[in-house]
């Protein structure tokens, strides 16, 4: 589905990732961990084409990402839902409009999406906040809204970058539960997090592969997790 072969990435003269190889199989669940600044976000960005590898090859759904033009890249991103740590929204649009944004940009906003949207927002626990503006939302609400937006097009892959970074333990468990549910629906899920307790808690509910970035390289994490 997404495959990285000997990928290295450098920026500003410094190498951030070296010789990384990774295969994300359909329906798999991955945790990506490592200390802050290790390159977790960079690796996720490489997976959905926000960054291009300095060397090596990244293929998504059989296509070499480096060869895609901007239009093809846009189509690729409709198949990969991304939850950002900072949950970027359009502040002048309501929560419902923000969540429906992928439908709008892909020309599917007319497909009687109203009911589906309400159902999705209810699933993430935001059914009553549809008309709220993003600045009115709490950290947990923003994270759940970002998750709803990431999955509204029913993507094959969901990449979540520190999705529980700004929320309390209870909310982080709720978010994890949503991501595990997505995985059970057949989605490939990758979660970048430095929170090892979250990984330990999740591992009892899902068959997950834990990968650690250290010294600019990607390793399979040990049994200590």
């Amino acid at each position: 589905m997404i495959e990285l072969e000997n990928v290295s990435y450098s920026y500003g003269g410094g190498e951030l990732l070296r010789d990384v190889s990774l295969q994300l199989q359909p329906g798999s669940f991955h945790f990506l961990t490592g200390p802050s600044g290790a390159g977790k976000t960079t690796l996720l960005k490489l997976c959905y084409g926000a960054l291009l590898a300095t060397s090596g090859r990244i293929a998504a759904f059989g296509e070499d990402i480096a060869r895609l033009d901007r239009d093809q890249m846009a189509l690729l991103r409709r198949r990969i839902g991304v939850v950002h740590q900072d949950c970027r929204f359009l502040d002048h649009m309501t929560l419902a409009e923000n969540v429906a944004l992928p439908l709008m940009v892909s020309g599917r906003a007319d497909e009687s999406h109203g009911a589906d949207l309400a159902e999705l927002l209810t699933w993430v626990g935001l059914g009553s906040r549809m008309d709220a503006l993003p600045p009115e939302l709490s950290g947990g609400e923003r994270q759940r809204a970002a998750l709803a937006r990431a999955v509204i097009l029913s993507p094959d892959v969901v990449l979540a970058d520190e999705p529980t970074g700004n929320v309390d333990w209870e909310m982080s468990q709720r978010l994890m539960q949503l991501l595990i549910e997505l995985n059970r629906m057949g989605k490939t899920v990758v979660i970048a997090t430095h929170d090892l307790s979250l990984i330990r808690a999740a591992k009892s509910h899902v068959q997950a592969r834990v990968l650690r970035i250290s010294q600019r390289r990607l390793h399979l994490a040990g049994a200590d997790l």
């Binding site: 239009d71 189509l75 409709r78 970027r88 944004l101 992928p102 940009v105």
Partner: peptide
């Protein structure tokens, strides 16, 4: 620019 970045992230084409 930030709005454009968000739109791109959710799969908007340049045309849109």
């Amino acid at each position: 620019a930030q709005i454009i970045e968000v739109l791109r992230q959710v799969g908007a084409r340049d045309r849109f």
